[in-house]
């Protein structure tokens, strides 16, 4: 049961993630006590942000994640509280820089993969020797 919270930072008086939609008829179901206050907007915060305290938005520079659909200039939604797993797109600290990679946890070791053949894999002896800053949950790709 998640706590739904709206935009945490208000800038220019507008929500970053408010999208207007046209009213859509919904089949009658369990009546919600919040119905009277439903104002017809999808709140992207509610859908894209699981935990407001641990979620950050970062911007990608470079093309090493192209094959994963992450392009130069795209924004990523990153949850710092998530446990990184095999296959997670992670923000790792490499040489003091925040770097986005695909994490591979294999029997032979930990690999940080690029999603672009131009860039080599980076092998790490153990996960404990790696600082994972956060796990990307969504890409806001510019189409």
């Amino acid at each position: 049961m998640g706590v739904i919270v709206g935009p945490r930072v208000i800038d220019a008086g507008a929500s970053l993630f408010s999208v207007l939609i046209s009213p859509v008829p919904v089949a009658a179901g369990f009546p919600s006590p919040a119905q009277d206050y439903f104002d017809g907007r999808i709140d992207l915060n509610a859908h894209l942000i699981k935990d407001i305290t641990s979620t950050f938005v970062v911007r990608v520079t470079g093309d090493s994640m192209e094959r994963a659909g992450i392009s130069d200039g795209d924004e990523l939604i990153v949850n710092r509280a998530l446990e990184p797993r095999d296959g997670s797109v992670v923000i790792a600290v490499l040489d003091g820089e925040l770097t986005v990679k695909r994490l591979r946890l294999t029997p032979t070791g930990v690999v940080l993969q690029a999603e672009n053949p131009k860039y080599p894999d980076i092998k790490v002896p153990a996960l404990s020797e790696l600082t994972i800053w956060g796990v990307a949950t969504r890409c806001l790709h510019h189409v």
Partner: peptide, 15 residues
């Protein structure tokens, strides 16, 4: 202002 300004988000390297 990494968390309050859209044009000042933290940059992550894809390289």
């Amino acid at each position: 202002r990494y968390t309050t300004h859209w044009d000042e988000l933290p940059l992550v390297k894809a390289a």
